[in-house]
Nucleic acid binder design. Structure first.
Lengths: 274, 274
DNA sequence: CGAGCACTTGATTACCGTCAAAAACAGTGG
DNA sequence: CCACTGTTTTTGACGGTAATCAAGTGCTCG
């Protein structure tokens, strides 16, 4: 199915790991210490005392918890610049684990509280970070009520924007299918099937251990006229009214259409199976 | 199906509306103005400028947004003491609507920011409120990946605890089936079927427009030994190991078992259909 | 009492989960 | 470089759960 050279693959895998960032959260800059974690190691464990807040410097982290029937539920992914551990309870409700090799800045909450007292800006930024996290969870709530293909599309778009905002047409995802499945509330098989479906439609190229999306850089100037085709492909039907089309344009799938250039060339379903 | 007297019903319906509360959020007390909204009226609209924060004084509010295919997705319910509008973006991402007649305290964010500058406590409380909301959404994330019956059970427990924490064995829910369905990502028919199922099992009594749960007050002293029966009923299987049982006890369904006294008397499925 | 809405129930369909096997891939050692 | 091994992913067949479609019942209110 995949015809990527191993060169491309290596480039792909490095994209997620090497990117550092100069501290995006200004008020936290300079405080705390930097720690490194190996791939698959746990940074915080569920029920650990929540004494620190963590900012990802490089690599990818996910937070998760086990549900009663032994299934792992991933609550979120965190990339360079993201902050996790904001639960604000005595104990962490989620385990945080390194997906790749990771560097994090660790800040004591005590220290942070002291800063809050002296500097209003810090308080506001903390609030802002938590609010961003809240907004993300609310988006997710909406997403989890939608069919599998849309969940996967939305996930890819979200990851594309967050994990690698500077690249135009090549994006690497560090997590495994199982991680995606546990995040989207699907099974690994369904995730795989949806990815295959998107590949059949010419939207992505996926390979082992890292997913590569071929995305044309559109910068918002995608011809709206053609989006109907995309709509037809993803949803199996066209928007009936102009209003419906416009609403769709602001939806997860609509954003998909502006990112993936699926509107030219191959029409949905026309490709034969491998 | 229901044999409630109209007396009970009236009592039930009033329970949600009449309860006010002395401001639970101390630092916000005294600021802002109180506004009343009629049932079904919209308090904020999606894309409105987000200039205020709202605290529910009495009644019930829900927040929602339309998805691309015209389905309404409810993001949350808010009862007396709850705060909504915390998204912290320029514009509201969700519409807030009164489910019952509602009184809310409306606080300008500008005013709040001024308070934050002068009083660290205010900042911390704001942060705490946002974190509570975040934790709730994360719980929900877990829930949405589980089967329909569990979603409904968890929903009932959550509502029972939040909407009416003082009553022991009689609880009124102000929202319609459609609201529940839009919140849990189910259809109205499925919600109805799950409620019927629970009623058949003797856990609840549901009637038109308001759901009444008959809950024995247990105050945490439910005999653990019997919970296995409940487990068997809800999940169709027993916990195989002690560890599995213990994990389950801290799960949504486990909490259900400590609230609904379903462990004595009628065994699951023994009751004939109406 | 009748109209309209909310809810329930039943029959059928479709999507996704489960189980099983095969294929692709990474890492190891020869 | 290649064969071997274990892991991850893909693919297929099948079944179950929940959505859809369609009546039917119960509740509220004029």
């Amino acid at each position: 199915m995949s015809n990527l050279t191993s060169d491309t693959k290596r480039q792909t895998l490095r994209a997620g790991d090497d990117k550092e960032h100069s501290c995006r959260n200004a008020s936290i800059a300079g405080v705390g210490i930097v720690r490194s974690y190996a791939r698959k190691s746990q940074i915080v464990r569920e029920n650990d005392l929540a004494e620190h807040i963590y900012e990802v410097i490089s690599g990818t982290v996910c937070t998760w918890k086990m549900s009663s029937d032994g299934r792992r539920q991933i609550a979120g992914f965190y990339f360079a610049g993201d902050v996790f551990g904001l639960e604000n309870a005595k104990n962490h409700s989620l385990t945080a684990q390194a997906i790749t090799a990771v560097k994090v800045r660790v800040v004591k909450k005590q220290v942070l509280n002291a800063l809050v007292s002296s500097d209003v800006k810090v308080a506001q930024q903390l609030l802002s970070l938590t609010a961003v996290e809240l907004a993300r969870q609310q988006e997710l709530h909406l997403l989890l009520c939608r069919p599998a293909l849309e969940r996967v599309i939305h996930f890819l778009i979200d990851m594309a924007q967050r994990s690698c905002p500077n690249e135009d047409d090549l994006i690497a995802l560090p997590m495994h299918r199982q991680d995606i499945a546990d995040y989207l509330g699907l099974t690994i098989e369904t995730v795989s099937r949806m990815l295959s479906e998107l590949e059949r439609r010419g939207a992505i190229k996926s390979n082992y251990r890292s997913i590569v999306l071929y995305i044309k850089s559109t910068n918002g100037r995608t011809p709206i006229k053609k989006l109907g085709d995309f709509f037809e492909g993803v949803k199996g039907r066209r928007p009936k009214t102009d209003q419906e089309l416009n609403e769709w344009l602001t939806s997860p799938e609509g954003k998909a259409a502006t990112l993936f250039d699926l509107t030219s060339g191959s029409r949905w379903g026309e490709r034969a199976r491998s």
